[in-house]
């Protein structure tokens, strides 16, 4: 009924209602006199340093203090979202006690979005993240986090999919990173080029990767983001002959080349050779004119074109991170929508 959990045994109901109204009154009084600070855990060392959490912390708590259930199924428990998983702990548990119970080695504790400097009492509905600095979460842990973010159905569909990306430049490197972050299960990336200093103005590489083949550098970066995404790379030039072999079995194909004749070649070849597999291509994203001219368009069945369709890269109108990134993320979102059975346009 959307009410706090109340014990309906008559004698205890009265006590509960009194307690609740008292809690409400006390809370309001506290708001006025103590600037809404929440109860704190005992401070045995009497350091007092950083004892009180920021005021905003109180307000971001998902449920007001007075609504905290004091009796849940006859037990005195509160619900906590710990690392995106719901758990129940006894009422009165402090953050440090929770750490002892769950992961004594966790050295970074985040409560409702704010790093906690000291111990505090936990409230029902609190969101706690426990991190061991420098430790990579397991595939299962990351899976749980992704599922919580994307909902299980959406996550499962993304995780099972295989996406091909032709080109690992300004478009391809950005698209691959967006798709790895959302958890696309398999990425197939092809490019023949190496990382050059001039690429760093828009492509997702680092200065210490100059000279590496782009596919090698990109795979390295993708694995640093999500080591559980399978990345297949081909350090080769794509043409009409090897297109289907390199990108065998992809659910969606992405054109992310730079040269216009290469874009046209792969588009025609893909539409002829794999008409049932959607293609997301791009044309026109140079310079720094308005972001809003970059659009996602459906050209024909299974062919989507992103860009402003006219701004070519030329002297005086170079390729720059923002517009290339916008087009790349249009492409990545079109891929995501296709994987989830939605029309990109």
């Amino acid at each position: 009924m959307g009410l706090p959990d109340i014990d309906f045994a008559p004698s205890r109901l009265l006590a509960s209602l009194i307690e609740q109204s008292t809690a409400l009154g006390v809370c309001q009084a506290l708001r006025a006199s103590l600037k809404c600070e929440r109860p704190l855990a005992p401070d045995p060392d009497h350091t007092g340093v950083g004892k009180r959490l920021p005021q905003r912390y109180y307000f971001t708590s998902r449920r007001p203090q007075f609504m905290r259930p004091f009796s849940l199924n006859g037990k005195n428990v509160i619900r906590i979202l710990l690392n995106e998983t719901n758990i129940e702990v006894s009422n009165g548990t402090s953050l440090y006690q929770l750490r002892e119970q769950q992961d004594a080695k966790a050295d970074l504790l985040i409560v409702n979005g704010f790093p906690a400097a000291t111990d505090c009492l936990l409230a029902d509905g609190d969101q706690v993240v426990m991190i061991r600095r420098g430790v990579v979460p397991s595939a299962e842990q990351l899976e749980t986090l992704m599922m919580a973010r994307h909902t299980p159905g959406v996550h499962a569909r993304i995780a099972q999919s295989r996406v091909g990306i032709a080109g690992a430049g300004g478009l391809g490197s950005n698209i691959a990173i967006a798709l790895a972050r959302v958890g696309v299960g398999q990425l197939v990336v092809a490019d023949f080029d190496v990382v050059e200093p001039s690429n760093l103005n828009r492509q997702q590489y680092f200065i210490d990767q100059i000279g590496l083949p782009k596919v090698v550098a990109l795979k390295e970066n993708l694995q640093r983001i999500n080591p559980y995404v399978r990345v297949e790379t081909s350090n080769c030039r794509i043409d009409e002959q090897n297109l289907r072999t390199v990108f065998a079995g992809v659910d969606v194909m992405v054109e992310a080349f730079d040269a216009p004749d290469q874009k046209a070649m792969i588009t025609a070849a893909h539409l002829q050779q794999a008409p049932g597999c959607p293609l997301v291509a791009a044309s026109g994203m140079a310079g720094y004119e308005t972001s809003n001219s970059i659009r996602t368009q459906k050209v024909r069945n299974n062919f989507y074109l992103i860009g402003d369709q006219k701004t070519a890269a030329r002297p005086g109108c170079g390729l720059m991170a923002p517009r290339v990134g916008i087009a790349a993320n249009h492409q990545a979102n079109a891929v995501l929508r296709l994987l989830l059975g939605e029309e990109p346009e």
């Binding site: 430049g169 730079d258 046209a264 791009a282 044309s283 024909r300 860009g307 369709q309 070519a312």
Partner: peptide, 10 residues
């Protein structure tokens, strides 16, 4: 006839 023209950049 539909003509789709590509411009350079990526």
């Amino acid at each position: 006839l539909e003509i789709i023209q590509f411009v350079g950049g990526g």
